[in-house]
Amino acid sequence: MNVYKGILNHIARYVELSESEIKEFISILKTTRVKKRQFIVQPGFVSEYRNYIVEGSVRVFYLDDLGKEHTVIIAIEDWFFTDFYSYIHRTPAEYYAEALEDSLILQMKYEDVEELCSRIHSLSQYFRLFTERSMAYSYKRTISNISKTSEERYWEYVNKYPQIASRVPQYVLASYLGISPESISRIRSRS
Rank of each mutant, 00 (worst) to 15 (best):
N2F: 12
Y4C: 10
Y4A: 11
K5Y: 14
K5C: 07
I11H: 08
R13F: 15
Y14G: 04
L17Q: 02
E21F: 11
E24H: 14
F25G: 03
I26S: 11
S27Q: 02
I28L: 08
K30C: 09
T32K: 15
R33L: 11
K35M: 07
K35H: 04
R37D: 12
R37W: 11
Q42I: 12
G44T: 08
G44K: 10
G44I: 07
F45E: 11
V46E: 15
R50V: 08
N51F: 03
Y52N: 06
I53R: 06
V54I: 13
S57V: 04
V58L: 11
R59N: 09
F61G: 05
L63G: 03
L63Y: 03
D64M: 06
D65Q: 12
L66R: 12
K68T: 15
H70V: 05
H70R: 09
A75V: 05
E77K: 09
W79F: 15
W79S: 13
F81E: 05
F81W: 05
D83K: 10
F84W: 10
F84P: 14
Y85E: 14
I88M: 13
R90W: 06
T91Y: 14
E94H: 11
E98Q: 12
A99H: 10
E101G: 07
E101D: 14
D102F: 09
S103A: 14
L106S: 08
L106P: 09
M108V: 08
D112V: 05
V113L: 14
E114Y: 02
S118V: 05
H121Q: 14
S122R: 10
Y126W: 04
Y126G: 03
E132F: 05
E132Q: 08
S138L: 07
T142M: 13
I143R: 10
S144D: 05
I146C: 02
I146R: 11
K148Q: 09
E151T: 02
E152G: 01
R153K: 11
Y154P: 00
V158W: 12
P162I: 06
A165C: 01
R167N: 01
R167H: 01
V168Q: 06
Q170S: 00
Y171V: 04
V172P: 01
V172C: 04
V172S: 03
A174E: 00
S175D: 00
G178S: 01
P181Y: 01
S183N: 07
S185P: 00
R188E: 01
R188D: 00
